[in-house]
């Protein structure tokens, strides 16, 4: 900030020209000929347009290809409504669980020193690198008819697989790291001084957490919840394996997209897909805003 003010002030002084000259010379040393620049920008823009923009556009184009009435009709089908409800429920469960876990784990990892910390963080990160299909498979192996707990569950008449608990469990597995990973670096960077100050002023552990720690990490919490939620609502592979695809009961929105698409109900499939695409876009916009908030917090600390 001060840099910019200094620059704008210096423009009105006599040696402003000389400075501009120096700036231009400095830029020259660090850039390429104009033709190269244009070529690189074109390649980048073209690539992103083909691979990212067009797929997004095509979702909405096909969703509305038969007009807005057909679009709304597709979304108000009972099957569609059931899928939306189930998706919201599953996301609420897994985001809730991972939020609590994320806060607890970040407190233990960021505020204390202990051996094996890096290893623990690697373990928390594991789900990021496990194929979604395998994330579903592990629960089939535990709770399926031939699974380790399958017999016991059947005897006690508890349904996990092909029901909400299984879907919520697989989704929780897949979204496990998001909140913790958003909070750990943030809390490590903030250190423990404010918490120590609170304790020495007589605050209890919970008072310290809710009055001092939480207000400082609120944007980070929101950031983690946002990404966790986007993944939870959009998860396909893991949920596909554990859901059993029971229409109107265990189909989440992404699963319904697949079923409708395979039945050549393209408008309906893309109508549901457009809702998920909108979720993705809103998530990205919110993420950009939150990142700015987090950066400001960062600057305030550096100040």
């Amino acid at each position: 900030m001060t840099m910019q003010i200094a620059d704008s002030v210096s423009l009105s002084t006599p040696d402003a020209k000389a400075r501009l000259h120096a700036v231009a010379a400095r830029e020259n040393l660090r850039t390429e000929p104009k033709a190269v620049r244009i070529a690189i920008i074109s390649v980048a823009v073209l690539f992103l347009t083909v691979f990212v923009v067009l797929p997004l556009v095509v979702v909405f184009a096909r969703a509305f290809s038969k007009g807005i009435m057909a679009y709304l009709a597709a979304l108000s089908e009972p099957e569609a409504l059931a899928a939306i409800r189930l998706t919201l429920l599953v996301a609420a469960i897994s985001v809730g669980l991972n939020l609590v876990f994320g806060l607890v784990a970040a407190w233990a990892i960021a505020k204390f020193e202990f051996r094996g910390k890096t290893f623990l963080i690697t373990l928390i990160d594991l789900p990021f690198s496990v194929s979604p299909v395998i994330s579903g498979l592990v629960f089939v192996l535990l709770f399926g008819a031939q699974g380790y707990f399958g017999g016991w569950l059947r005897d006690h008449n508890i349904q996990i697989l092909f029901a909400v608990p299984g879907i919520a469990l697989a989704t929780t597995f897949v979204t496990f790291p998001f909140v913790a990973r958003a909070l750990i670096p943030l809390m490590q960077e903030q250190g423990t001084q404010e918490e120590e100050a609170a304790i020495s002023l007589g605050a209890s552990g919970l008072q310290t957490f809710f009055r001092v720690t939480l207000p400082n990490i609120k944007w980070g919490v929101l950031y983690g919840v946002l990404l966790c939620n986007a993944r939870a609502m959009g998860e396909f592979g893991a949920v596909s394996v554990v859901s059993g695809h029971i229409r109107g009961e265990t189909n989440t929105m992404p699963l319904l997209v697949e079923i409708l698409y395979n039945e050549y109900q393209f408008v309906a499939a893309f109508a549901i897909a457009s809702l998920l695409a909108m979720l993705a876009l809103i998530t990205l916009i919110a993420k950009t805003i939150l990142e700015r908030q987090l950066d400001e917090g960062h600057d305030a600390r550096d100040h």
Binding site: Q193, E194, A197, A198
Partner: peptide
Amino acid sequence: RHVGFVFQHYALFRH
């Protein structure tokens, strides 16, 4: 302990 502690970097609650 009822000890007043002033931290080197003050540790004021920034929010």
